[in-house]
């Protein structure tokens, strides 16, 4: 059975790490430009995401993460491949 990803959950997680309101965490928001996340915030967020969703992000994937959408799409793809496995 595939577990549905809950965007609210990701919003809350990102908001906690970045110290912002969960409603600010929207798909089109850029980490750096819109959410004022610096490199250390991103590392922390990714570590929290890895823990919560039991996934690992490679350095290359990490470098490509520019917005919440990038992170969401990555998680959706991981979820899909887990379901197929």
């Amino acid at each position: 059975m595939t577990q549905e990803l809950d965007f609210k959950e990701l919003q809350n997680l990102a908001a906690e790490i970045l110290g912002i309101d969960p409603n600010e965490v929207q798909l089109d928001k850029s980490f750096q430009r819109d959410l004022a996340a610096d490199s250390l915030d991103l590392v922390e967020l990714i570590a929290a995401v890895e823990d919560k969703y039991d996934v690992e992000l490679s350095e290359e994937t990490l470098e490509g993460m520019k917005s919440i959408r990038d992170l969401w799409v990555f998680l959706e793809e991981k979820q899909k491949s887990k379901a197929e496995a």
């Binding site: 490199s39 250390l40 991103l42 590392v43 922390e44």
Partner: peptide
């Protein structure tokens, strides 16, 4: 290498 060290350190 700040971000690498950060990740390693917390972990």
């Amino acid at each position: 290498k700040g971000p690498d060290v950060f990740k390693f350190a917390v972990d």
